[in-house]
Design a protein around this nucleic acid. Structure first.
Lengths: 338, 338
DNA sequence: CCAGGATATGTTACCGTTAACATAACGCTA
DNA sequence: TAGCGTTATGTTAACGGTAACATATCCTGG
């Protein structure tokens, strides 16, 4: 691996002159430039960004911490992030926490060591401490999808409460009166926000928001399956389920099928998130779709702005609206339940 | 951001002593260790990995270049890579090329500048030049999913030819005689390998592998849609389609629906790749599933081995078998076509 | 024809860390 | 008690680049 010194030697100039040619700064005679460029080509010299970063204190690298990249919602966010970052000359390191606070802490430590310029974080049960380290080091952070209770921070997220409210209202308008909610971990803000939206819709319609209709679990297929089984055991059985993400919806569908229930004839289901259209042959779920790509994009732009020291002193929160699609998974409750 | 010098000053020792405490090397008196550790805690000192990397010439960072992270096949690979890498103390930078050779080249350049320790690459129409740069710099590369014609290299991939062969044989056994193949770009080895498997199955059964049954296009929903329309216009119309990946399958399904054809009653469809079980309510495709997670994992292990200078001098190629699932998208051809 | 700006190039020091090589005090043994 | 290994700590230089400053030549206008 040749260095700037090798190039300098070969071209018969000083390192500084080579540096000037590379960065097109200062004065260089056409003749010298030629010789240096030839030496660069002959040696296949590629500058060492580490050395530059050490001086400039910036690495042109950001990180994205999500809970699980295989969740298509986060995958799409990741794509939005990477496209935007690389367009602006930044690389992206990605990390999966699996909702573990400890994993998150460990990643944050390593990323600080690697001197990332900024961080996009989907907090995993995070406490204010989690990002205190970053803020001590004045590394900008933008939260994605979720917030950290008790710690205001720049955030880009979708309106969970509103999305849940509309989905549940849709069920109520269809005639449902007993609607269970299958949500994520109660330490995650999107999980609680979605329950809050469910509650608002019910109360507004004069329906009771009974505690035994609320299920907190994991944002996973298995979590959805477990919660759906519990919900179905309720007496009387709910006539509709509202699931807080795509994995939970799929798990719930497994449980419904196992119980021999048809959707929507016997029971309706509405959900947050949708499968990307690239993967669905025949979309089925009535859903609140989150603008995942745009969220990744906007969060990155916000972060890059912060890197340039732009934007207001106060924290910025960008809350994007979900988009609703009404499909075959929701219908009126069975006649005996009306 | 405090440095080792700050810690040294505060603890009243030299930088070197602090370095020894951090790395647990050499001799330190218990007393000094205590003072240094306290200074570290008080300052919230976190070592600068850039400076270490500059000295040691290794960054504990690898990169993963895929064509599109939103393809669930690559998403799952990415998860396998990141899990394995982080387990071994490596971070992962990820990049999307969208099948563009130029994007790939640009990423490779930047990654070399950032001194990545190794690269996992899904080649995008790559030529031998594409990775020549890396090999000049003696940065280990492991190819994933595809190979580069004319350039032997360490590779982890799935057996495309074999998978295609079995899927098409399955169709032949069901009684199909006119089977179209909808593949990816003809510059991509998986696309041509899958056509080769199709051809072998046909020839082996004494059926003609007609050129007008072969369609090369993009590995995308739109590509699948376009190719399916072309295929359906063939006279006589094929009784079955073999699609070379999940996106093409979905696009083809759109075209089939548009043409008013039922699957499998009017036409059968078999495909490479499957939707992850976390996303499918009711899996439908007869498919050759690739062990994506394992591919990511194995490729990373192979790469990490290379970083330690292990393994044979010759290139290693790990070819994993696909797994087959026979589902509702394939059945016997309609009676009039038998 | 000479002062002074424009042009061209070099030198030094620094970014934060650590390997390699001092240096010095301490105890133990012959 | 001289001599030497062990323990403990410090100094120097290097990793690869560049800002800041220094130096030297050239040309131009008064």
């Amino acid at each position: 691996m040749s260095t700037i010194a090798d190039v300098a030697r070969r071209a018969g100039v000083s390192k500084m002159t080579v540096s000037r040619v590379i960065n097109n700064s200062g004065y260089i005679s056409p003749d010298t430039r030629e010789r240096v460029e030839q030496a660069i080509a002959e040696l296949g010299y590629i500058p060492n960004a580490l050395a530059r970063s050490l001086r400039f204190k910036q690495t042109q690298t950001i990180a994205l911490i999500v809970t699980d990249i295989t969740n298509p919602f986060f995958t799409t966010i990741a794509r939005g992030v990477e496209d935007t970052a690389s367009e602006h000359g930044f690389s992206v390191i990605f990390c999966n926490t699996d909702e573990s606070r400890e994993e998150e802490q460990e990643y944050v430590r390593v990323l600080i060591q690697k001197q990332i310029d900024g961080l996009l974080l989907v907090p995993a049960r995070s406490t204010p401490d989690s990002i205190a380290l970053l803020q001590d080091k004045t590394i900008p952070v933008v939260l994605l999808d979720r917030t950290i209770p008790g710690r205001p921070a720049d955030t880009v997220r979708c309106d969970s409460e509103l999305g849940a409210y509309h989905l549940v209202r849709h069920l109520i308008e269809l005639g449902h009166r007993r609607i269970a909610v299958l949500s994520g971990p109660d330490e995650v803000t999107t999980a609680t926000d979605r329950v809050a939206g469910w509650r608002r819709a019910l109360l507004e319609a004069g329906l009771p928001a009974l505690d035994d209709l609320v299920h907190y679990g994991a944002f996973s297929v298995d979590g959805g399956y477990q919660m759906a089984r519990q919900a179905l055991a309720g007496k009387p059985r709910p006539t509709a389920l509202f699931t807080a993400n795509n994995f939970i919806a799929v798990g719930a569908m497994h449980a419904l099928r196992e119980a021999g229930l048809r959707v929507p004839e016997d029971i309706s289901l509405v959900t947050f998130d949708d499968l990307p259209p690239t993967m669905a042959i025949d979309p089925f779920f009535t859903a609140a779709m989150q603008p995942a790509y745009e969220m990744g994009q906007q969060a990155t732009l916000l972060l890059l702005n912060r890197l340039e020291g732009k934007g207001p002193e106060t924290t910025q929160e960008l809350i994007l609206p979900p988009q609703f699609v009404y499909r075959r998974s929701s219908g009126p409750p069975p006649p005996e339940d009306r």
